[in-house]
Design a protein around this nucleic acid. Structure first.
Lengths: 135, 135
DNA sequence: TTTACTGCAAACTGTTTGCAGTAAA
DNA sequence: TTTACTGCAAACAGTTTGCAGTAAA
């Protein structure tokens, strides 16, 4: 039994084909930034008969279980990625759609300072750089 | 004739009631961060008979004319604000929905450096801190 | 055998579009 | 008078939900 199955059980989820396949997909996909449609189509292509509604349900459950995280890089559709322990931000190549991850301690630090200066504490944050190849 | 009318004409847009009212609304609303629904409802409340589709069309045109900017703070609905000359980022109070603007030169600087380090240049960026009152 | 999970189709939300009528220039 | 603009209703994309059947435990 693979590692993923433990994760599913730990989250109180039955080990079913759609869940295992979707979890694998995040691990095997280069970059690991996928939309519900991406996953649905890939499952279809590999001959699995999984409904789009199930994909959405599984993604929602995975997110609730902190297995994955959800991002809204544009207003149209959500992108999911495996929840890594360490936080990171994203760069989206607007020409190719590629997503690059990065972390910058200086920025992280400043963010907390700024929130504090206004009397707040950060619950969460989202930093996305939309970039293109240098011209 | 008010200032706004010049702005509309400059953008090649006829000076119509919906457009004037909506532009005013951004200027008069405290904070000036509004969704299409916000605007639609406020117009209704003030007795103006403007359709929701028109609100969306006007917002799209205003954005194209660089009069306003569009943000996706959550995945559900877009928020618009008057386009100020100087760029700024946003803090969203998750408890109240309030939007606070801020600028930080250190963060701005680091962002460009990071993009450059990866061989990119920044087209645009989005930084949102989701905050709550300090506990 | 029990209960969670699934696929399907229908519902929903935010947004866009076609069209015939209306108003700005 | 010409042409852009508007309201309405219908269409759309992404996502969610009710339900009867299916499979994991």
């Amino acid at each position: 039994m693979a590692i993923q199955n433990h994760e599913l059980k730990k989250a109180g989820l039955k080990v079913t084909l759609p869940r295992v396949k979707i979890l694998q997909m995040f691990e095997l996909t280069d970059g690991g930034h996928l939309s519900a449609e991406d996953i649905y189509k890939a499952l279809q292509d590999s001959g699995e008969d999984v409904g789009l509604a199930t994909v959405y349900r599984v993604l929602t459950q995975f997110e609730a279980a902190n297995l994955i995280r959800k991002h809204n890089f544009d207003g149209n559709h959500a992108i999911y990625e495996l929840a890594s322990e360490e936080h990171h931000d994203h760069m989206v190549n607007v020409q190719t759609g590629d997503v690059i991850e990065f972390v910058d301690p200086v920025i992280e630090e400043r963010q907390h300072q700024i929130a504090a200066e206004h009397g707040y504490e950060i619950v969460e944050h989202s930093l996305v750089l939309y970039v293109k190849a240098k011209s």
